[in-house]
Simulated assay, not measured.
Amino acid sequence: MSPAPGQGRGKGRGRGRPTRQRAARGPSVVGRRFEVEVGPVAHGGHCVARVPVGDPSSVEPVETRVVFVRHALPGERVVVELTEGTEGDRFWRGDAIEVLESSPDRVEAPCIYAGPGACGGCDFQHVDLAAQGRLKAHVVAEQLRRLAGLDVEVTVEPVPGDDHGLHWRTRQRYVALPDGGRGMRRHRSHDVIPVETCLLAAPAGPSYVVHGRVFEVADGGFWQVHPGAPAALVDAVMEALAPQPGESALDLYAGVGLFSRFLADAVGPSGRVAAVEGDRAASALSERNVPGITARAGDVGQVLAGGLPAEWDHADLVVLDPPRAGAKRAVVEAVVARSPRAVAYVACDPAALARDVAIFAEHGYRLASLRAFDLFPMTHHVECVALLETGRATTLHNP
């Protein structure tokens, strides 16, 4: 379900943010209905369809307009009702309000608040859980192909800790209603839907213990909301990097030091770890969670440009765990300037990942492995761990 403002937004990973109002480009098309055949899934929790515009009786070819359709599945035939757009827009948005021919992957949504016009957070409650993984895998692969020029097979791995895709969100905030109740927002809207119970909410709050290591986290500070996420990501990063005693490791967007702690254990007393984090409270906690590290609070790009001792002009290993917008060019180029033998990139947005992978490729770093994890069942979100190395062709491992 869509979070209230600020819900789950640690390190820039906000979801359900209401849309900005754009200048109208002609009369509104909201409310128009079309019967369409649904095309492929797209990044953002919707599928692509095309609808005719203009006069269908004209001798000229009928122009079509792209519609991003929620609550549909590829191959279905549905009635779509437009929910956003004007006649001059390049694309419109809509909801599948009636299914004429359904996909075998369609199931009944377990939540009474899911569906057209209702709570906007769960993009895929109408989709079989295994099929959700296939849809997300398609999106990751398509973004890498389109933005990085890579042909990659992707498998999205389930993570222990949820109940058939439900009851995994260990932090949850609602919108307070005037009558004392609570609610969630509609998709791309400030409108609030009253909600009694969110089926994504976990029965207990987050555990800050990972593989026997205890982490201190500030109230409201960032921590993965799926209970199985921290261990799964640590395992994937450590397997990808294979840190050795005596190596130097740079942990960027380090939070409270989750990856730093296990990197420090692996490189040992003869190695060194530096953790850079924009949030000062989290950075201070990383020093407490990982004694002996070099911790710096501040904008990652600025710290890399001049906020670290000279010994960090080189690093053997780098972990990148940026916010949803990605690391971007300045940070990527500051990383490759340190000539690491391996970079583990933890990505919550496949488009940002693909753009940054393309920048790494400009500097001789190639995608050596990729794993994807279903840390956000029932939503379109997916987490990836990519390994980037120099001097290797792309040979990808999917468990």
Score class of each variant (00 low, 15 high):
Glu277Phe: 00
Ala242Asn: 14
Ala236Lys: 11
Val267Pro: 06
Leu250Val: 09
Leu250Ala: 04
Asp299Cys: 04
Ala297Asn: 07
Val276Glu: 04
Leu252Trp: 02
Arg261Asp: 08
Val256Asn: 11
Gly271Met: 09
Ala310Ile: 04
Leu285Asn: 05
Leu252Arg: 03
Gly301Met: 03
Gly271Asn: 07
Gly220Lys: 11
Pro245His: 11
Ala229Asp: 08
Ala254Thr: 10
Ala266Ile: 13
Leu241Lys: 13
Glu287Pro: 13
Ala327Cys: 11
Ala266His: 13
Arg261Ser: 14
Leu258Trp: 05
Leu250Thr: 01
Gln302Thr: 15
Leu250Asn: 00
Ala327Phe: 12
Ala325His: 15
Leu285Ile: 09
Ala231Thr: 08
Gly301Ile: 04
Arg280Val: 12
Arg324Lys: 11
Gly278Val: 00
Gly212Val: 10
Gln244Trp: 04
Leu252Tyr: 06
Met238Ile: 10
Val318Asn: 02
Ala231Phe: 02
Gly298Cys: 10
Leu285Thr: 01
Arg296Ala: 15
Ala295Arg: 00
Ile293Thr: 05
Phe262Ile: 08
Leu320Pro: 03
Asp316Trp: 14
Leu241Asn: 12
Asp321Ser: 06
Leu317Trp: 05
Ser286Lys: 01
Val303Pro: 01
Gly298Met: 15
Ala218Glu: 10
Leu320Gln: 05
Ala284Arg: 07
Ala229Ser: 14
Gly298His: 08
Leu258Gly: 03
